[in-house]
Design a protein around this nucleic acid. Structure first.
Length: 318
RNA sequence: GGCGCCAUAGCCAAGCGGUAAGGCAGAGGUCUGCAAAACCUUUAUCCCCGAUUCGAUUUCGGGUGGCGCCU
């Protein structure tokens, strides 16, 4: 019990894209004297504003937002980097007697912070990775999987041979550290979470409603000048990270004259829906999440009330 | 009115006398260092009726629907 009292309160607002996380988080911050720490793998980048739905100054309503818009789009950024920064921000916010509110749709980032995953230090590995990639290209996925199965059968069993990225990573981490991924995972979870968590998840009873919101939002992004934003990024020479961001990569073909604007827009909508579905798959398995079904409430105020109620119930008051 | 073509899953689409590829969409899932990424699983009895046949989605006849052309 005393242990519980010592823990740092941390509210998490999760859910699929376009479910209203940002807006709810801001309102919670206003009510509970909080600050927002973003958990979004794309909003971290500068110049990618419209397409990542980065909150505008107006939308922030004066609430401080951390871990948004702070690194150039071509910089490599990993979960480990994120967790480090997020922990730091949570501490800073807490020290000011403010409530940290972790908000975002990147499940891996959220979980890693919430579960207090300790990522081991590992040296730069691009060379080894390239070597493994070369072998893989030559010998094939099965071969690499068998190699992994020799060194870390537990991990191998959970991976499909076609998932070469992970298979290679499993081999790589062993060659690099002499310790298997399975062991790394065990070690990463030894320290108990310092947070008193309250996780809120936004979802929809009717999936169609979510998809309609996604479509509408993509259309809105276009009106706001998303295509010009993509043009600018390319002009600045940034096409590496944006290559994998939905709402950016789809416009490359359009800008190269390979498809119509409408086709590109439809593609963005489609990809965003699939992304939302994947996000739900990720979050659904986290039993700590208290789900709020957005389409069961008449307006945002009622959603806020529900969220406050859940926070109260789960933390005994903050 | 005549001639020709087509009819396979929500969509696109292959196929064959022995009980139907693939792609997309949809649904479900995996997840520890680029995660808005990567990967996995999953969905039909072939327009209707008759005939031939051991057996028809596949052949033949008729119907219905659609497309094209002609008068």
């Amino acid at each position: 019990m005393d242990e519980q009292l010592k823990k740092t309160p941390l509210v998490c607002v999760v859910g699929p894209t376009a479910s209203g996380k940002s807006s709810l988080a801001v309102k919670l911050a206003q009510k509970l004297s909080g600050e927002i720490i973003s958990a979004d793998s794309m909003q971290i980048y500068e110049y990618m504003n419209i397409g990542t739905a980065k909150p505008t100054a107006a939308e922030m309503c004066g609430i401080p937002h951390h871990l948004i818009d702070f690194i150039p789009p071509d910089k490599l950024f990993t979960v480990a980097d994120y967790v480090k920064l997020a922990r730091q921000k949570i501490n800073e916010v807490t020290k000011q007697n403010k409530l940290p509110i972790l908000t975002g749709g990147t499940g891996l980032y959220i979980s890693s912070v919430a579960d207090n995953i300790i990522f081991s230090e590992s040296p730069s590995n691009t060379k080894l990775r390239a070597e493994l990639k070369a072998i893989s290209d030559e010998q094939g996925n099965e071969f690499m999987w068998n190699m992994l199965n020799e060194i870390d059968p537990i991990l191998a069993k959970t991976l499909h041979p076609n998932n070469s990225g992970r298979v290679l990573r499993g081999i790589e981490i062993y060659k690099l550290t002499g310790t298997t991924m399975t062991e790394h995972k065990r070690l990463s979870r030894l320290r108990e979470s310092p947070y008193k968590l309250c996780m809120l998840g936004l979802n929809f009873k009717n999936r169609e409603t979510l998809y309609a919101r996604i479509d509408a939002r993509v259309d809105a992004m276009i009106s706001l000048g998303l295509v010009d934003e993509v043009r600018e990024l390319i002009k600045m020479g940034y096409s590496k990270t944006s290559v994998q961001a939905i709402g950016y990569k789809e416009f490359f073909d359009y800008l190269n004259g390979k498809c119509s604007l409408q086709e590109a827009v439809d593609c963005v909508k489609q990809e965003t829906r699939k992304y939302a579905k994947r996000q739900l798959t990720w979050f659904r398995r986290d039993e700590r999440i208290n789900w709020i079904y957005v389409d069961e409430f008449e307006d945002n105020d009622l959603i806020l009330q529900e969220a406050l109620k859940l926070i109260n119930k789960n933390t005994g008051g903050i």
